[in-house]
Simulated scan of single mutants.
Amino acid sequence: MSSAFVFMVIFCLESLVSVLQNGFMVVTLGREWVRCRALPTGEMIVACLAASRLCLHMVGTLNNFLATFGFSHACLFFSIFWDFFNFLTFWLTAGLALLYCVKISSFSHPVFFWLKWRISRLGPRLLLASLIMCVLSGVSSISRTIITIQMTASQSSHGNSTLAYSPYTFFSKYFLFHGAFLLSIPFLLFLMSTLLLMFSLCRHLGQMRGHRPGPRDPSTQAHTVALKSLACFLIFHMLYYSLLITSSVKVSTFCHQLPWAWEVIVYAGLFLHSTILILSSPKLRKALKTRFWGISSASS
């Protein structure tokens, strides 16, 4: 049994669990959204983030199998949708980090007071801004795909010697720019929010050192829970960037042979972050316990 097949099986199981996981979040929060016609800003972003990751897993799985079986043109086409949901995931995560930073941090600057007062009303605007940025990024993905297809057609009609760069060499360079540069914008916003939240926690612990607040201090708990979620996705960001650069060095391997180990690592980061989001949300934890209790009662 080849290692590629083993990683392919692991990836399929990982994707199946992630689809069920994010589907549960979408159904639970979406039902609450429809019933109450409103959601807190944090839960609104988490619901849209889960929906984005659900689509990302489904499109990614389809794209990977198409590339594995040699449907390169279909792979290029579906990569547009994968890029869109990937960018949306990054922007929504950055928005969630910004929300945590504003609501939990204990800074006394007037800007933070203004944001704390306004952030609860800015949920739809944050989602709209994320969507607009992803649409603009999608234009770049469409341009990359069109140029790559035209280069492939020109190379096949005139021979390999007529082009200084092969289509997949162009694809690799564009893919590296498209991923590393455009994703750096939400990443920097995410990193800044995470660092500010860490600084706020250190400052809070320094202020409360003489009072000995203990582990049950509400502010300390809020900081810790938020930082656990952000730290997990920060590690994913670092792995994603390193693997993005590595895969872009030899894009033929990425598009044709498809290193399934790369896919397993990338999607494992998304899976772990979604798990932390479920466990850190009282509403999702309650719904999960109710669902498991109903299944266990029905089976018994």
Results as ranks from 00 to 15, higher is better:
Leu243Ser: 07
Ser229Lys: 10
Pro218Thr: 05
Arg209Asp: 10
Ile245Glu: 01
Arg203Trp: 01
Tyr241Lys: 01
His211Pro: 00
Ala222Gly: 02
Gln221Cys: 12
Leu201Glu: 14
Met238Val: 15
Phe236Glu: 04
Ser219Leu: 12
Ser242Gln: 02
Pro215Leu: 11
Pro218Gly: 05
Tyr240Lys: 06
Thr220Ile: 12
Thr220Asp: 00
His204Glu: 12
Gln221Asn: 09
Thr246Tyr: 13
Arg212Phe: 07
His211Tyr: 08
Gly206Trp: 05
Val225Trp: 05
Pro213Ser: 10
Arg212Ala: 06
Ser242Cys: 12
Tyr240Asp: 08
Met238Arg: 00
Phe236Met: 03
Leu244Asn: 07
Ala222Pro: 04
Tyr241Pro: 02
His211Val: 12
His211Thr: 09
Ser229His: 08
Pro213Gly: 07
Pro213Asn: 03
Val225Phe: 03
Thr224Tyr: 06
Leu239Gly: 14
Pro213Gln: 02
Leu205Gln: 13
Leu227Ala: 07
Gly210Pro: 12
Met208Leu: 11
His223Thr: 08
Cys202Asn: 11
Pro215Gly: 04
Phe233Leu: 13
Ala222Tyr: 02
Ser229Glu: 14
Ile245Phe: 11
Ala222Trp: 01
Gly214Cys: 06
Leu234Pro: 01
Gln221Tyr: 04
Gln221Val: 15
Ala222Phe: 01
Arg216Leu: 11
Met208Ala: 15
Ile245Ala: 13
His204Val: 00
Met208Asp: 01
Asp217Ile: 01
Leu234Phe: 13
Ser200Cys: 09
Thr246Cys: 05
Gly214Thr: 05
Gly210Trp: 06
Ile235His: 00
Leu244Gln: 11
His237Glu: 07
Gly214Ala: 07
Ile245Gly: 15
Pro213Lys: 03
Ala222Val: 00
Ser242Leu: 14
Cys232Leu: 15
Leu239Val: 10
Gly206Ala: 13
Pro215Thr: 03
Pro215Tyr: 04
Leu243Val: 04
Ser242Met: 12
Gly214Lys: 07
Cys232Val: 15
Arg203Asp: 13
Lys228Gln: 14
Ile245Val: 15
His204Thr: 09
Lys228Ala: 03
Ser229Ile: 15
Ser219Lys: 15
Tyr240Val: 00
Leu244Pro: 01
Tyr241Ala: 02
Ser219His: 12
Cys232Ile: 14
Lys228Asn: 14
Arg209Ser: 15
Tyr240Glu: 03
Ala226Leu: 04
